[in-house]
Simulated scan of single mutants.
Amino acid sequence: MIRDLIESIMVIAFGACRPEDGCTGADIGAAEQRLGIALPEALRDYYATAGRHRGMMDAGFHMLPPDKLRLAGGCLVFCEENQYLAEWGIQPADGASPNPRVSGRARDTETWYSEASKLSGFLIHVATWQAVMSLPERARCELPEKKLKTLEPFLEHIGEKKLRSGGHRVSFIDRHNRLLATYLYNSETLYVGATRPEAIEAFEARCGLELDAL
């Protein structure tokens, strides 16, 4: 479902996607047996590709590895904010779907809210954020949502619309220049990461943006 997309993100950020970066089938199977549930296909893909890679698991978001997955408040919790202020999970009613919706909540509260209508979209954008935060060159700028389409001639969306949509972010890739970008709708902020400063500078010039280094 999303394995190829996660691999493409890792190739940009880390130069390669190695077998040892992912969890084994035994790792995932042991988690399913312990929890008594089957993990959705999109989450299995993330673990199989990046479940043992430190940058992809713990750069901005804290993705729980299979042996740390837990049931809390009626949800399968698989991701936490890096300062443990929020957590994200899958509710039992959605768990039978290969690509369920994602619910979130602030820590120490009982109420879950809808975070994303598709787990695949949530994980694509988590993966892009982790990679951007791991890249040696990073920058950001405020960008009104109405101007987001001006980036499309210079960047490729990560994933087909049916996989990437349904959340509060959108993510992009520039394979030729080894550059990744993710846009946060709620703050109208674009974050960009690349392996070389020249790639950031060239992107800034092409798009007519003024980026601030991170």
Rank of each mutant, 00 (worst) to 15 (best):
L85W: 11
G25V: 03
A30N: 04
L69W: 11
S97Q: 15
S117V: 06
E80L: 10
H53D: 11
A42E: 13
R44I: 12
A38W: 01
N82R: 12
E41R: 15
L85D: 14
H53W: 08
R52Y: 04
I90D: 01
R70I: 07
I37W: 15
W88Q: 04
A30C: 00
P92I: 10
Y47V: 14
M57N: 01
P92S: 13
V77H: 08
G51E: 09
A31W: 10
L76F: 10
V102P: 03
I37V: 15
A26Y: 05
Q33C: 09
I90N: 02
L64I: 03
E41H: 13
A86D: 09
A59C: 12
E110P: 00
S120P: 09
W112C: 00
E115D: 09
P92Y: 12
D67G: 03
E32D: 10
Q83L: 11
G104P: 00
S120C: 07
P100Q: 04
G74R: 04
G104V: 01
R52H: 11
E80M: 11
G73R: 02
A30K: 02
G73K: 01
P65T: 09
E41Y: 03
L85T: 15
S114Q: 06
W88P: 01
Q33Y: 07
L69A: 03
G74Y: 09
L64Y: 00
G95H: 06
E32Q: 14
G95I: 11
S97A: 15
G89W: 05
R44S: 08
A38S: 13
Y84I: 04
P92E: 13
R34I: 02
R101H: 03
T111A: 10
S120Y: 06
G73F: 00
R70Q: 12
M56E: 10
T49H: 13
N82V: 09
V102Q: 03
L76V: 08
D67K: 02
A42H: 04
T111S: 12
G55M: 09
T49M: 15
P98Q: 06
N99Q: 03
S120L: 09
Q83T: 15
A93L: 13
R52L: 14
L119T: 10
D58Q: 13
G121I: 01
T109M: 05
L76P: 04
A48F: 09
G121H: 06
G60W: 12
C75Q: 06
L69S: 05
